[in-house]
Amino acid sequence: MSWFSQSWLSPAEWEVLILSLKVSGVAIVAALPASFAIAWMLARWRFPGKVLVDALVHLPLVLPPVVTGWLLLIAFSPNTPLGGFLERTFGLTFLFRWTGAALAAAVMALPLMVRAIRLSLEAVDQRLESAARTLGAGPWRTFATVTLPLSANGILAALVLGLARSVGEFGATITFASNIPGETQTLPLAIYSALQMPGSDIQVARLAGLSVLLSVGALVLSEWLARRSGQEKGRHVV
């Protein structure tokens, strides 16, 4: 890929950028169904221990990320029951792998995503769902035609918040997946490593600038998506 070397980013910088996008992308795509299920449970169900589930989901938001990383280490290392099971059954390993960085990012993004989706689900008027039922729609059709479209903005917000959180994830990732160039070294970790080396001010500044560009890009994208869905809804007005 010769154009890499001619472009304004060095091959190492490209590697960091692409790895960051891969890790965060996989993290939020994996966290979305889980977030939705948990948000649904918290918004719609009443069950004993709900407060506990709520607290548990929010834990990564309030714990020092290092502690979250350490807890992941304890839960998912191959010599624990869960880690061993995942490795034997699905060939999934997390330690020192990019999948570990994605898992750490997903866990850190989860509370924000659950909150955004939960709020939007709670804002959906359940009387509209019962109206759909009397018109002949079963629970799934009601969900797809009423609940989902009316909570779409919350799901979009969850994706943007989750992406922002996972692109910036540092503490849990470095604790759980370590800082391996090309495997788990995402943008924040690369900046941290560059800071450790004397005389790499330019390198740090370039990576930091890249990070700013990425964040601004995500913001612009989310704004554009929100506007587009707003126009879609307003299209038939008047």
């Binding site: 008027d125 009387r127 509209l128 019962s130 109206a131 759909a132 039922r133 009397t134 018109l135 002949g136 729609a137 079963g138 035609t145 009423v146 479209p149 009316l150 809804k233 038939h236």
Partner: peptide, 30 residues
């Protein structure tokens, strides 16, 4: 019987028209 199998036409006091659908799509729903 589940509500969708009772075949009632329920006109609610608070109407409950689907706010994200046009009148046409509201009418076409059932």
């Amino acid at each position: 019987l589940k509500p969708e199998r009772r075949r009632c036409g329920y006109v609610f006091q608070d109407l409950r028209l689907f706010p994200h659908r046009t009148v046409r799509d509201n009418l076409r729903y059932g």
